[in-house]
Amino acid sequence: MAVLSLRRFFLAWLLGLTLVGAQVGATGTHGLSEQELKAAALCQVVHFVRWPASSFLESSAPLVIGVYGPDPFGGVLDDLVQGENVSGHPIKLVHCFTPEAASNCHAVFISSNDLRTADRLVHELSSRSVLTVTDGQTVESFGAVIAFTVENHRIHIAANLDAARKANLTLSSKLLRLAQVRKDQP
């Protein structure tokens, strides 16, 4: 059995570390984070969606954006929606904890922490006029209307036309040009 050599052990570890450390990518702890980018994208996407007339009680009724589950944005979304409005509807941000509460929103952002709950929520909302936006790792996740993913450090937006149709929502052609358009699996 080899005699334990503390020094050799430590040096081997340190050498391995240096080799790994030299590969570390040029990313800083400042600059634009994924959460900030997705929050900004969410605020912009709602401008490209048309809800049925029945979704708003009056022309100045608030457009309610709900965040379902633990808030992944850390306050950034709250700052971004301050004073913003979509076609005269002021944006109101709420946190939802049940599918019933989410169905009272115009748009719901579902963070994919708990896939089981996210899946259920998208199913429950699929025939309501709610813009479901997910943050999934898989672009076709759950049949939500919009999905944000980050690939190669850039945000990608996927739009599911079948889901939009089921929800009675119209996605503007400008959005469809920018996004990757998907349809439900047969």
Partner: peptide
């Protein structure tokens, strides 16, 4: 590694969707 300056909220608000899709996540 360089440290980059953080984007402010008003800067973020000013980007259109098309511009946002061209930004790089650096954090």
């Amino acid at each position: 590694r360089e440290a980059r300056a953080q984007l402010t909220v008003s800067e973020l608000k000013s980007y259109s969707l098309e511009q946002l899709m061209g930004l790089e996540v650096t954090s």
